[in-house]
Amino acid sequence: MRITCTVNGQARELDDVWEGESLLYVLRERMGLPGSKNACEQGECGSCTVYLDGETVCSCLVAAGQADGREIRTVEGLSDGERLHPIQQAFVETGAVQCGFCTPGLLVQIEDLLRRTPDPTDLEIREALAGNLCRCTGYEQILEAVRLAAGRIRSTA
């Protein structure tokens, strides 16, 4: 089947997509955007989180055909191309990145959180990120990163 969509602001058209493929597969294997990660393929780990028409979804649970005509934003679209997004910068500084496999999904989910809740409490952060598994960090430095990024975004807003 043919799929037409917008990814990170660019119009994309794909032919010969097999109907059984997920949005995650199409992003990773057909569009050259492997930033979104496949760690469970059943919506449990959040590593594949992307925006679909402005809502965060697990792209492993979205059939490729469901993405037709829609707007997608991935971890590759977070930075403006020159500077890291403040959340990315905070991850780098606080040690929130170890193996980094969960990082792309977390970054997208955190951006969504901070757009809705610019000054979240720790419990709000925990609740918002409960669908993103991380096996390396114990989450402590991820919390630090969210607090740091939230403060910086608020101070520049």
Binding site: P34, G35, K37, T74, L78, L84, G100
Partner: peptide, 13 residues
């Protein structure tokens, strides 16, 4: 770190 937060780091998968 920068590669990992921008999605550019090449994992084995």
């Amino acid at each position: 770190a920068t590669l990992k937060v921008t999605g550019q780091f090449a994992y084995s998968s």
